[in-house]
Design a binder for these strands. Structure first.
Lengths: 344, 344
DNA sequence: TCATAAAATGTTAGCGCTAACATCAGTATT
DNA sequence: AATACTGATGTTAGCGCTAACATTTTATGA
């Protein structure tokens, strides 16, 4: 099944892929009719459609999305930018995005910033080169250049995970409120010396927002809100190390409010190994509601962040925006939910 | 900075993006010179380069990758197909792929098959439409249509995770050997009644391969190799439930060889909650070497699969192949490593 | 100084597809 | 039977970029 147009003086791969021109020739129609069959746009008589479909099979046509996207100025790409792929939280969001977008025939372009805003800017630039139908980006904080680029770009932009002053769409939860909520719970449990433990809080500034809420709640009743910021990213090991540090450096502490469940789980498992009683000796609280938290002993007291929901809601709204449908609201608070275990 | 070509009768977005023609006009050079500056191909005098770069800034040019890819017949896309995004194992592989490919300016197109081979076939079709520079696909088993499509496609293809008879490149480990290795270890520990527990082994057939190895090793010394196949995908909950089932249905069992660490961890944590002694009452072994396994009590005996290595090695070899470099070997065994904890 | 090579830049012709408009056939209306 | 209308299909002209070849400029050496 050789391709038709061979008059070109131009190179090409040895074996040229068939194009719609080849299909058109085979089906005895014009190229645009083939295009209409492929895209289900415009009217095509059933008999013609069948002929074209047969021809597609016969010549082994594989559609060239690049050409189509260029010609129609619409790529059906969704640029998705997250800070990290090693954090399950973002994976679940991506998973939610993916499943919704795929249904509608959109393809995700994925990249992670490693929590680096300059890298984020670079990625935004690169991705915009692919003429995406929309941009989904984590967080509301970008560097100046990135902010300007995004503001000037005229497709839909969804800033996710946290709530605030967004460029376009905004789907997420109120991290300060979440921090306050957990702090309030710990206060209700009569804790008066609570250490907040985070990992690289400067970069993971949403953990910082939760700390602000936590701090505000404690200071409102005249308590101090010590912060322990670990210099490694939040995984089990870091959580375990932080427990040691807290027990040594904050002898009065009766509870630790961890910035996330990874840290909290790491601490909880260490406590278990070392026979440190939780919550009697030290109470432990986390954030995210990861599955592992419900399987450790005691089950982790945490706040469940609706990650899949963020992904799905974002996809829905972005698609609505792409298709020009009007949205009532640019901001969606997906909320959060306390999950009370026995660890605090 | 309005775009130059306005003679077209064609629509376009209200505000047209500047093109290299606009940059060329501004910098008083030809379009191809701008292209050369952007792509760092061919020689451009430093003075000219600076003029062009200034012009790019001035007109706010954003490169159109679709057009470039179409013209050069090379998209720098890498199609990556994995069974699932909820499994950390694949995430880590993707992470390894991502970091390497990005360095070289390749963009990953990601999709998951949900362990469905027909879906896989559909995804391959769609992805090939984007003219990817290479395809990275999980596993060696595809349905007939998919197999044919991949064989006929003439770019580099990497089939990863397991070793065997591949279409092109093959990077992975020998799952049968891994299963044998762990079985041998359990035999050395004097276990004679070992249950193999998997989840949806039909779909996760690499777990099946490990079971085959396990079975072969046991049968070689005249032992039975009972298999418990859970009907839910392998997470903590399933692992926990399976422990109950084994204790009830296989009273003689002294060890469980789990198909993966998620299941094993779920079982181990349940054992802990219920005061079931591990390994005295029942020994537990896993597969993958997830971080969590080293933090539970007792630490999990498992086999570490080098997931990031698979990602990186794959990227390296695929890039070599794209760039036409010769590879000594189409098959790379990344091996595996026993990690002996106290759980078995 | 002038031939000659090398470097820098330009010209031309598409990549494969689709938007917009044009045309043509069939049907309903008067 | 002429008219208007609808549905199906075709023609044309790019989308924005780059490969290949062509040309001009600059550096090199005898």
């Amino acid at each position: 099944m050789p391709a038709s147009s061979n008059k070109s003086r131009r190179h090409r791969k040895s074996v040229m892929q068939p194009t719609i021109a080849d299909v058109a020739l085979e089906a005895q129609v014009s190229a645009i009719t083939v295009s209409r069959v492929i895209n289900s746009t415009g009217a095509v008589r059933p008999a013609t459609r069948e002929r074209v479909e047969a021809a597609i099979d016969k010549v082994g046509y594989v559609r060239n999305m690049l050409a189509g996207s260029l010609a129609s100025a619409s790529s059906r790409f969704i640029a998705v930018i997250v800070p990290s792929l090693s954090n399950i939280v973002f994976i679940e969001v991506i998973s939610g995005l993916q499943s919704e977008f795929e249904k509608q025939g959109y393809q995700i372009l994925l990249a992670n910033t490693d929590y680096n805003l300059d890298r984020e800017c670079q990625l935004v630039r690169t991705f915009l080169g692919w003429s995406p139908s929309a941009v989904v980006i984590t967080g509301l904080r970008h560097n100046a250049a990135c902010q300007r680029i995004l503001e000037e770009w005229d497709g839909p932009i969804a800033e996710i995970m946290e709530l605030g002053d967004a460029i376009d769409l905004n789907i997420g939860l109120d991290h300060q409120a979440a921090g306050r909520r957990m702090a309030r719970y710990l206060l209700e449990k009569k804790h008066r010396n609570i250490v907040y433990v985070a990992a690289q809080i400067e970069q993971d500034y949403r953990a910082g927002l939760r700390y602000e809420g936590h701090k505000a709640e404690l200071e409102a009743v005249g308590l101090k809100a010590p912060l322990l910021d670990m210099d490694q990213l939040g995984q089990f090991e870091t959580g375990a190390r932080s427990l040691d540090i807290v027990l040594a450096d904050y002898p009065d502490a009766t509870a630790i409010h961890f910035a996330n469940d990874d840290l909290a789980t790491g601490a909880l498992l260490l406590a278990q190994r070392q026979g440190i009683r939780v919550p009697e000796t030290i109470a432990i609280a986390g954030f995210n509601g990861l599955p592992i938290g419900q399987h450790v002993t005691p089950p982790l007291t945490t706040i469940i962040s609706p990650r899949q929901t963020i992904g799905r809601a974002t996809a829905e709204q972005v698609i609505a925006r792409i298709e020009g449908r009007h949205l009532q609201n640019n901001q969606t608070d997906v909320g959060f939910e306390m999950s009370i275990g026995d660890s605090a």
